[in-house]
């Protein structure tokens, strides 16, 4: 078969995505993307502790509406994040995601940003809900994501209202 626009690893994740679905009673949820642009990602995390009593991501699942790259990056980040401490997980960069997938077409690079943003949001959600300490780095990232979200919502108000209704 001819080589498509996506790498083998991307296609493997797309064909059989890892860790998709919902986590009931998730400790943290990260919602990013919007329907107008065509990608919506939702990450669920469950927190546990490792031997050193550090908090780690015990379980992680995703739900994604989007293109092949969006689904593959969602699947890839669940692999990367599982078992990591919250501090390590929050630092997973888009480059790490892309590297784990081999490559992404340049026009799809924003999908990898979306995946790392979703994880940041999920961790932030957990920490803020449980009134835990939030590192400055994480707070800055969250602020940027929230600001971007606000801007798109303003721009596409009617459509995002509909999206919220659909998400329930």
């Amino acid at each position: 078969m001819v080589k498509g626009i996506y790498s083998k690893k991307v296609m493997a994740h797309f064909k059989k995505p890892h860790n998709y679905g919902k986590i009931k009673n998730a400790d943290g949820i990260g919602n990013v993307g919007n329907l107008v642009c065509g990608d919506v990602m939702r990450l669920y995390i469950k927190i546990g502790k490792n031997k050193n009593k550090q908090e780690i991501i015990k379980d992680i699942k995703f739900e994604t509406f989007g293109c092949v790259a969006a689904i593959a990056t969602s699947s890839a980040i669940t692999d990367l994040a599982k078992g990591k401490t919250l501090e390590e997980a929050a630092k997973i960069s888009k480059t790490q995601i892309v590297d784990s997938l081999g490559e992404l077409p340049p026009i799809k690079m924003h999908c990898s940003v979306l995946a790392s943003d979703a994880l940041v949001e999920a961790i932030y959600d957990y920490l803020s809900k449980n009134k835990k300490e939030i590192s400055q780095d994480l707070a800055v990232k969250h602020e940027r994501i929230a600001k971007e979200k606000e801007e798109t919502e303003k721009r596409y108000k009617d459509w995002t209202d509909m999206e919220k209704k659909m998400l329930g």
Binding site: G4, Y6, F14, G38, D39, F65, G66, V68, A70, M166
Partner: peptide, 14 residues
Amino acid sequence: EFIEGESLLIQLDM
């Protein structure tokens, strides 16, 4: 409803 065309297209292609 609820799905994105490119993913659908690639699935169909496969």
